[in-house]
Design a protein around this nucleic acid. Structure first.
Lengths: 198, 198
DNA sequence: ATAAAAAGTTAAACTAGATTAATATGATTT
DNA sequence: AAATCATATTAATCTAGTTTAACTTTTTAT
């Protein structure tokens, strides 16, 4: 059971999509977990089975894939009011393709695989809530595929900087390069070109 | 109202995720549309507001984005038992980023934006059904992003060929190149290298 | 059967971005 | 304050994939 004050951030978020009754809020709070991770700790490790969908209350995580050559490829960053997990592993309960690691001290609300079906049964509205959330995530993901094909590295960086100014400030540049799918050296070159241009 | 025989393909598909009662099946069939398109026709055009989520009964569509330079970027192909639409446009009812065009004579079942909320109200199970479908689509989309960064063009082509052998056979090669994010000339080169290698 | 259009191939010249390696800056620890 | 470690920069060389253009094969229409 989570303390009411922490849970409120999540309830506010959910209520933006589906209004919950007092009773439903109580049920929800009774079924979710809360946990703090320190900088550097892993929420999910590649190969493990992902047991939790997590809502970020504070802090920041990176979700990344380690390829055969030991190269890290960052798929996404998650900050306050975002979600984090390996959804593929969570929904199929098979080993995770991704790692989720905290870049700062991070507070999470955790929806366990073992209780989420009970939660859907108790509060059917949550089926709708998660459908809406995932729809948005899917649309964003499709748009990212388009950008990866139709924009140059410089254009993708400018897009990222405009879209997520808060994230750029708190994350080292070499991780942003990884997220953009380029080397840190090339991002450095892009940045110096942008300074000259403007 | 759609004829029962056609609707059955969709009902079988839905029943794999959520079992429907006879009555629910009747309601569903009464609320969906059916339409045939000819080769070359557009189901959605960039700039229009996407009014329908479509389930493919037969045929094949491509979903693509036309960039500023008039270059076509194919995001996905949809064949039997798949979905097609610009989901971003559908859920937000804003102008579509994508075109959906038929590559063959194509039969679609259409879920209209104007009735889909009624359908959720009448059959709450469908919230779950669409959540599950979209979850899968999102996971596939995330994996595609990873492939676009961590695999070479040749590796991506081999992956595509293994994953979607049925699609490769019925689609011109230059469209596969577009889907893979490379030029048709380079795909041609990759194919000749693969022949030499094996 | 022939012409025309669409799709696919090949090869040379070119470029966006990778690789390597050396150097610089900044943060953290002692 | 010095030493160490993580992060960022710069520049030379290299490569995967693009561009352009000429040519071949396949499909479609008449």
């Amino acid at each position: 059971m989570i303390i009411k004050e922490k849970g409120q951030l999540l309830l506010d978020y959910i209520n933006r999509y589906v209004p919950l009754t007092e009773e439903e809020e109580q049920i929800l709070l009774s079924k979710i977990g809360y946990r703090t991770y320190l900088k550097g700790q892993f929420v999910v490790q590649q190969g493990d089975i992902c047991k939790y969908e997590c809502f970020v209350l504070s802090g920041c995580t990176k979700t990344f894939y380690m390829d055969g050559e030991g190269q890290e490829h960052i798929v996404m960053f998650s900050i306050e009011d975002w979600w984090t997990a390996d959804m593929g592993s969570f929904i199929t309960q098979t080993p995770a393709d991704y790692n989720v690691q905290c870049l700062e001290k991070t507070e999470l609300i955790m929806f366990s695989y073992d209780i989420i079906e009970d939660l859907y049964a108790a509060i059917p509205k949550l089926e709708r809530f998660f459908r809406l959330i995932i729809q948005n995530a899917f649309v964003a993901s499709q748009k990212r595929i388009i950008r990866s094909f139709s924009l140059s590295a410089k254009e993708r960086y400018v897009y990222f900087r405009n879209q997520y100014p808060k994230i750029e400030q708190r994350i080292p540049q070499y991780m942003i390069a990884s997220y953009l799918g380029i080397t840190k050296e090339f991002l450095s070159k892009i940045k110096s070109e942008l300074i000259v241009e403007q």
